[in-house]
Amino acid sequence: MEEPALVPPTMEQIARWQGVQLPNATARHGLGEMQGLIDAMAKLRGTMVFEDEPSSFEAALRDCKEQEA
């Protein structure tokens, strides 16, 4: 299967921003899989609202405690 086009520039970006070098061929293969994640995230565009924030999770855990079904 042909390697996704995102792989070489992403490798360059990781090296530049993180100082981490490609460790092996499997990592290169795995990086190619990221196209699927990009596509999945594109489908979710517009769902996050301005007020969403990480701390809402702890509040939801408390609020969603079991009550009578």
Partner: peptide, 14 residues
């Protein structure tokens, strides 16, 4: 790291 682990971690930097 084992091959599978540094391969998995590597993608996380992207």
């Amino acid at each position: 790291y084992a091959v599978h682990l540094n391969a998995r971690l590597y993608g996380g930097y992207s």
